[in-house]
């Protein structure tokens, strides 16, 4: 299903910039994040935007590895980097897991959560990216940066 933007347009005519599948390991996350950062550098994406995309991708991949794959290195996570004719960038991370209740993620800035050692990943992604959509019950995340 095409993503719908706040301006009413849809994600037609997307161009693939990279499409990789990786084993569900933390080492593979670093490699994929580095690859995407290099691609964004080649596209002359500004440093601030590169950082925000890279961190969001890292968080999404970490969620996929830990929650979607249960840290099982025999399972695969797919990460696609695409752009549209307006230069907007989308990253799609897909894992084989059952998904999760993304609307149940607590606000990490609440006083009672400040010292909790988990639960910030999805919040960070939503702060760093311009549009975030979950598909397939949460086993796929589409993150847009304008």
């Amino acid at each position: 299903m095409p993503a719908e933007f706040s301006d009413g347009s849809e994600d037609h005519a997307l161009s693939d910039l990279s499409d990789v599948s990786m084993p569900a390991t933390s080492e593979a996350i670093a490699t994929v994040v580095d690859t995407i950062s290099d691609t964004l550098t080649q596209l002359q994406v500004p440093e601030q935007k590169r950082f925000e995309i890279a961190l969001a991708v890292q968080e999404a991949l970490a969620n996929a590895v830990v929650h979607g794959c249960g840290n099982d290195p025999s399972k695969q996570v797919r990460c696609r980097l695409q752009s549209d004719p307006r230069g907007r960038i989308v990253i799609i991370v897909t894992d084989p897991g059952p998904g999760f209740g993304q609307n149940l993620v607590p606000d990490p800035k609440q006083r009672e959560n400040l010292y909790v050692d988990h639960g910030r990943g999805v919040y960070l992604i939503r702060q760093l990216m311009d549009e975030v959509h979950f598909e397939n019950s949460g086993s796929e995340i589409r993150m847009w940066k304008y």
């Binding site: 950082f51 961190l55 968080e59 970490a62 400040l114 010292y115 909790v116 050692d117 990943g121 960070l124």
Partner: peptide
């Protein structure tokens, strides 16, 4: 270079 949610979680846990 970059600190992610797992690093932040570690910092606040040991800060506490």
């Amino acid at each position: 270079v970059m600190i992610d949610s797992s690093g932040i979680g570690l910092l606040v846990r040991f800060l506490a």
